[in-house]
C-alpha cells in the first residue's frame, strides 16, 4: 500500500496553465498507472485544455464537472495568490493540498494550515515537490519526467520524508540502487512552517503495512526533529528511522540562512549538532553519508524483525 495517495486518487492542478504546471501535469499523467487529473484551474481560462485536462475558472466548476468530490489539488500559483487558491480548494471539499509555490509568508501558511485543520484537510508543503508512490502515481513535480522518476524510485518497504525536494530523489535513488524500494516518498518542504511535519506523517506510515522503515532528510533550523523525537519516544513506533542531516557547517554561522527559508540557526536548539543528539536519544540513527543509509536501515529492520 501507500500513504496519502494511491492509483485511484483524483486531483486537480491549480495554476495549470503556468509553464512549470504544464510540465508537471504531463509528468504526472505519464507516470506509473497515470494520475487521474480531473481538471485544472486558472481564472479566465475556462474551456482550454492542458494535455487533455480540462481547464476551469473555479474549483467549484471542476468539482461539478467531475460529478463527485475531488481528493486532492496541486497548487502552483504565485505566492501572492496561493492562500486564496488553497482556501478555495479546501472550501470545495478537497482534503489533500500539495503546495509547490515558494516564498509564501508564514502568516499565510499558518492561515492555510489552520483552515485545513478546521476542515479535516491536510496540506503538504509549501515549497515542496509533492508525493510519489513508486510505479503507481505521483502528485507534483517529484522525480521529474516519468522516465527520470522511474529511474530513481522503485516500490518497496521504505517510507521517505524529506525537507528537500531534490534530496528526496537522491536518497530514494540510493535506496533503489541497494535494492530497497520505497512505499511512499514525501517532499514536505523547506520552510519554517509547513503543512505536514515528520511527526505528523509518522502515524500514516505506522498504519501502512508495506512500510517497514523510515528514512528522513533533515536540516538545521526549526523544531521539527525535536517533535519527531518526542513522537517516536511517546508512541513506541514499530518503524526504525534513519536520518540524514545536511548543513552541519551552518552551526558555525548563526543568523545566516542557506538552502531553504527554514534553515537558520536561531537558538542552540536548532543547530545540526543539537538535533543529531536529540534524534539519537530517541533511537533514531543519523547517517554521515547518503551511501550509508541503505545498510543502516536494513540492519535496523532486520534486528527488529529478529527481536
Amino acid at each position: 500500500m501507500s500513504i496519502l495517495i494511491d492509483a485511484s486518487t483524483t486531483f486537480i492542478v491549480q495554476g495549470i496553465t503556468g509553464r512549470e504546471a504544464v510540465n508537471l501535469t504531463r509528468e504526472c499523467l505519464d507516470y506509473g498507472t497515470g494520475a487521474k487529473i480531473v481538471g485544472g484551474v486558472t481564472p479566465g481560462r475556462l474551456g482550454r485544455d492542458v494535455h487533455g485536462v480540462p481547464v476551469f475558472d473555479t474549483v467549484a466548476q471542476a468539482v461539478e464537472h467531475h460529478g463527485a468530490p475531488i481528493d486532492g489539488s496541486v497548487v502552483t500559483v504565485p505566492p501572492a495568490f496561493t492562500k486564496d487558491a488553497v482556501f478555495e480548494a479546501i472550501e470545495n471539499g478537497i482534503k489533500l493540498v500539495v503546495i509547490v509555490t515558494e516564498r509564501i509568508p508564514r502568516r499565510d501558511v499558518a492561515q492555510m494550515v489552520e483552515l485545513a485543520t478546521l476542515r479535516g484537510a491536510r496540506i503538504i508543503g509549501p515549497n515542496c515537490l509533492g508525493i510519489i508512490v513508486p510505479d503507481v502515481i505521483k502528485m507534483g513535480g517529484i522525480g521529474g519526467p516519468a522516465k527520470n522518476a522511474a529511474q530513481a524510485y522503485t516500490p518497496g518497504p521504505i517510507g521517505v520524508i524529506s525537507r528537500s525536494g531534490g534530496m528526496t530523489t537522491e536518497m530514494s535513488s540510493t535506496l533503489s540502487a541497494a535494492g530497497l524500494g520505497q512505499s511512499t516518498a514525501v517532499s514536505i518542504g523547506g520552510d519554517a512552517i509547513i503543512g505536514s511535519t515528520y511527526a505528523e506523517l509518522m502515524p500514516l506510515f505506522e498504519a501502512d503495512e508495506q512500510t517497514r522503515g523510515i528514512v528522513i532528510y533533515t536540516e538545521p533550523g526549526g523544531r521539527m526533529e525535536a517533535e519527531l523525537s518526542r513522537w517516536v519516544t511517546e508512541n513506541s513506533s514499530r518503524l526504525p528511522i534513519v536520518a540524514f542531516m545536511a548543513g552541519r557547517f551552518m552551526d558555525e554561522m548563526p543568523g545566516m540562512s542557506f538552502g531553504h527559508a527554514g534553515t537558520i540557526v536561531e537558538g542552540k536548539e536548532d543547530t545540526a549538532g543539537e538535533k543529531i543528539e536529540r534524534l539519537a536519544q530517541a533511537g533514531i540513527r543519523v547517517a554521515e553519508r547518503i551511501e550509508d543509509i541503505p545498510t543502516m536501515i536494513s540492519e535496523q529492520i532486520e534486528s527488529r524483525a529478529g527481536a
Partner: peptide, 26 residues
Amino acid sequence: AGGGSLTLFDAVRAHGGRPANYCEIG
C-alpha cells in the same frame, strides 16, 4: 539546489576541502 548544496558543502569540508564559496543552481 537547496538540500543538495548543504549536503555537498558538508561533504567537501568532511574531506578536508576548503570551499571558496557556497552557491545554488536550480
